[in-house]
Design a protein around this nucleic acid. Structure first.
Lengths: 142, 142
DNA sequence: CACATATCAGACCTACTGAAATCT
DNA sequence: CAGATTTCAGTATGTCTGATATGT
């Protein structure tokens, strides 16, 4: 139980600092994640369904996040080239610029502030990876 | 960055299973935490302000959680004995019963399902503890 | 008077559900 | 027709801010 509540508390800490860091850019952590996910893909676009799978959120939440990103000119919706049901979210140049700015800020204010050495960070990541895999989260990096 | 997103994802997994487990009892994880915090204290009561400190949430969130718990007869509000500004939340017998039921369920469906050995759990807790302390979370068990 | 505690209102974000529309 | 994808509406939760009332 202590482990579960610890994860909850640390997430609270991360989310609070991340949202505070991203607020001046008009982003939330959820939308930052969508932007980063798109910027990492070869084409800069993904079907909404895939975004939901990778970030483990509901389809309705993806619709909402993409709505806001599109409203701010950071992504565009495009028809799926081969599946008439699908919709692609494609990152725009403005989206790439903002994602870059956001990552610089996040590095400075969040990632670089972690009071852990490389070994601890690696160990933490490895242990959390086991939990993610057991829960069917297949969007694991590496 | 991978560590931060991993913590976020694992918290999502925990919160989803915890809320699903607690739903039949009419609880959310946030309210379960308040109930457990009260049940662990000697007197079964704490000032709202202390609850906010321990769980690292805003005063307004505590007011909200206690409102709902009180509506369901799980806690009572009482005047603070020595500080006229303060309000105590006190757990009721019904609250203790429900907290007990909830903990049995949580043990079965959440805590016992963690696919990690004791050593990994201890290591994870210790590492997260460093992060919590650095963020000024002084409600650490032990 | 400055400060602490609690409440309240309003805005915002995300989750979840079920229903509808479109397409395979 | 069954199933997949997306959207939408409605409900619920929790967060944050700022304002307010009360008490130290």
């Amino acid at each position: 139980m202590a482990v579960v509540t610890s994860v909850m508390r640390v997430q609270q800490i991360f989310l609070t600092t991340a949202d505070r860091t991203l607020r001046p850019l008009g982003l939330t952590f959820a939308r930052y994640e969508v932007l980063m996910l798109l910027s990492f893909t070869r084409r800069g676009s993904l079907p909404l369904r895939t975004i939901g799978e990778r970030l483990q959120v509901q389809a309705a939440s993806v619709t909402n996040a993409v709505d806001r990103l599109q409203h701010d000119g950071l992504v565009l919706r495009r028809p799926h080239p081969s599946d008439g049901r699908g919709v692609l979210a494609a990152i725009t140049p403005a989206g790439r610029d903002l994602a870059g700015e956001a990552t610089i800020l996040m590095n400075e204010e969040v990632f670089a502030q972690l009071p852990l050495g490389t070994a601890d960070l690696d160990g933490l990541f490895a242990t959390l990876r086991v939990l993610r895999q057991a829960a069917g989260d297949f969007s694991l990096p590496q």
